[in-house]
Design a protein around this nucleic acid. Structure first.
Lengths: 116, 116
DNA sequence: CTGATGTATTAGTATAAACTAATATGATTG
DNA sequence: CAATCATATTAGTTTATACTAATACATCAG
């Protein structure tokens, strides 16, 4: 299993964006039309539409057209559970994450604080 | 919950890279030294080191120095479970994911295939 | 102390992803 | 059919991320 890293990466990248996480939070309980989402997270229509397209392409959400509206929702229960699990794991990690900076320059004499 | 999107995004971005997923697969069962990882995934030492640093900064892995070696492993059981869950959810999604391309240009007359 | 080994960091460059503004499509209403 | 509304797409730009090569640091053996 998990040898198709391309697909897996693409899937996980779907979650790895602030705006997309906001969208997911926004629709995690119930489906919503694009315009609702745009309003609720105070976003730009074009931008949100592109993110929705990405999320859909990644298999994270699903869309259903009704009249001129398109309603998006979390694709399935497993994905919803995954979202919940993110929060659980994050709670145990919260402290450490804040400072993931690749190529961080140390000040003279400064030591990396070991979070081992 | 889940209002600190910056931190959450950073955490999830840790998983959203092919090389990092390979590393995680490589160490998911047991801790390994950097050089072992480099060898097993046939990578570049500098590159792997940077990815390890990122994973550590994201709170996904933890490192322990022993002599000149540094051994990395998955941070905790919850994170290991999260990794397992990725595979589970992916199985149900596999089909759809392959084609998440933002700004994909349609050929004349081509219709987006609806995966609704 | 010197050289060798293992790991980390830096600097520079290439690539990919996200944002904005403008425009296009598609459905509905009158 | 024309106007409107909701959403999607495009094109261009900016920003972030990943990669490579070179170098630094830290530990150990002799």
């Amino acid at each position: 299993m998990s040898c198709n890293y391309e697909v897996k990466t693409k899937f996980l990248r779907g979650f790895a964006d602030k705006t997309r996480l906001q969208i997911l939070d926004c629709i995690k309980e119930e489906e919503k039309a694009v315009s609702q989402i745009v309003k609720e997270i105070n976003g730009n229509q074009s931008n949100i539409s592109q993110h929705l397209s990405c999320l859909k392409g990644c298999g994270i959400i699903t869309g259903r057209q009704e009249g001129r509206n398109v309603y998006y929702s979390i694709r399935n229960e497993e994905t919803r559970q995954l979202l919940a699990m993110f929060d659980i794991v994050l709670n145990q990690v919260e402290q450490d994450v804040a400072c993931c900076e690749i190529n961080k320059r140390l000040l003279p004499g400064e030591k990396v604080k070991e979070n081992v």
